[in-house]
Design a protein around this nucleic acid. Sequence first.
DNA 1: CTAGTTGATAACCCATAGGCATTATATATT
DNA 2: AATATATAATGCCTATGGGTTATCAACTAG
Lengths: 292, 292
Amino acid sequence: MGYQLELRHFYYFLAVAEELHFRKAAERLCISQPGLSRQIKQMEDILDVKLFIRDKRKVSLTAAGTYLKKEVDYIFNHLDFTLKQTKLVQTGSLGEVRIGFLGSAMQSVLPDLLVKANGQLPKIQFSLKELANTAQVEALEKDQLDLGFVRLSRVPQNLQLKAVFTDTFSLVLPKGHFLNKTNFTGIDQVSTEHFILFSSDYSSLYYDKIMSICEDKGFTPVVTHKSVHAHTIFKLVESGLGVAIIPTSLQKGFKMGVKFLEIPNIPQRAVLYALWKKDNRNPALQPILNFL
Amino acid sequence: MGYQLELRHFYYFLAVAEELHFRKAAERLCISQPGLSRQIKQMEDILDVKLFIRDKRKVSLTAAGTYLKKEVDYIFNHLDFTLKQTKLVQTGSLGEVRIGFLGSAMQSVLPDLLVKANGQLPKIQFSLKELANTAQVEALEKDQLDLGFVRLSRVPQNLQLKAVFTDTFSLVLPKGHFLNKTNFTGIDQVSTEHFILFSSDYSSLYYDKIMSICEDKGFTPVVTHKSVHAHTIFKLVESGLGVAIIPTSLQKGFKMGVKFLEIPNIPQRAVLYALWKKDNRNPALQPILNFL
DNA sequence: CTAGTTGATAACCCATAGGCATTATATATT
DNA sequence: AATATATAATGCCTATGGGTTATCAACTAG
């Protein structure tokens, strides 16, 4: 009785919540299973809340435990970041902004931002990580990221979207393809070709847009390959395995045996959005957002 | 060495940061001053950051300490809030209930429930999904739903049924049909008409009930169309393609070229049931069930 | 110079986190 | 039905380290 919750309890709780197995969690924590069991029990006693259901042969989280895990995840990430920042404040190099991005943001938006920020706010450092849309959303909610660059139209309530770059779409063809700038009139001219697209789990919004471009012209594309990297897609096109549709700006920086034809007269646009948590606590984020 | 930061360190840190006085802070914490001094020193060693300036006769925060205090204040408030919420989740006064329903439940039962629940349990959120009977049963068993609204008489053992709304049946006729409130005596008057019904795979119980209504009156209806949406059925009736039998309350909310005549002197009733898993683990479900 | 602050240091004490051995219970196997 | 194997919980013990008191060192005020 009269015990106090300590960080230890939360570390242990997270380990068990992730492993859903006391012995494995204990191994990961480098302590014995009985010790772990006892600490978790103590935690439940202090909180007066059942966190785990030890049922039959498996352990699972209660609703309360599920809720707590999500919050503790966030709190720990925020705490880690805070402690790192505290040290930076001491050394005077205050300010780190953790940025996640889709590869396509590296074409222009992100480099522009970094150059501008470096010029005017030299004390703010950046850590960059290439991540898929969904991974960025999760990382933002857990406070593992401060800012994301995504292609999504709908995000959770507590996140804020802002369009930062609107792009047209271009058709990617092998060098020797009969279509060129003068005789290319519309996407329906390649309706019988095989298509190579970005994976829908990498960016479902992008995937749907491509499909709608084709459907507006009255055909459903035959998709033979999917990839997450522009380079791979270009390589596949170059090899004659099909054609692709990509945001126009993606062609920058690639020298390959393919040609790009901007698709005329379509309403679809590839929109890149900046994304951040509305109540983000990082003071370095605001000045960065002002550049967008 | 090799120590770990614990919540205690942060509690102590906050006390000193507020009092700016070790003895007073120690008093407030009900520990001795030397103990406090040692814990703060340990904290600074672990973080490798100087948090306080002990200068001459007064204590003050370093820049790093000031930053840390602000963040730890926030983190502790958030943690307190989280722990309180966790307890609420356990008691079921906070949480999410996932509800599946037949379109016809939206006429009165479900809106009533939601209004009542929102009034008395504003912290419980709902996610709603329109699903057929069988889909709801499957979703309930998979724990993708907490509560369903179905028209079924028999369900698997581990599910619980409860009647929540009993309705009479009405005949749906085109506006110009010769039958009306005064000359309508029984369903046998339309025994030769074509019938439009809900699909039996959408609700087999409903389908069987309709058939039994007719069979009780000595005829088997000629079913020419089936649909899953009330709106579609009304449209088909309006177009003169047949007549329909529906639960009386379904007419609410539709303005169409059809008329409704309640069928007198029949024992059949359209019963809407609430359905849930007996050993559902969601604590938010119980208080909702109490409203039924 | 003395009295009265302040926080830091030293040496001891004991509460308790964690280890080991074991039990209790459920599932899988024979 | 009996046995084997897996799980988490329980009981007892040890030793780490947080908290104690006593003291020191440094500063200020009178």
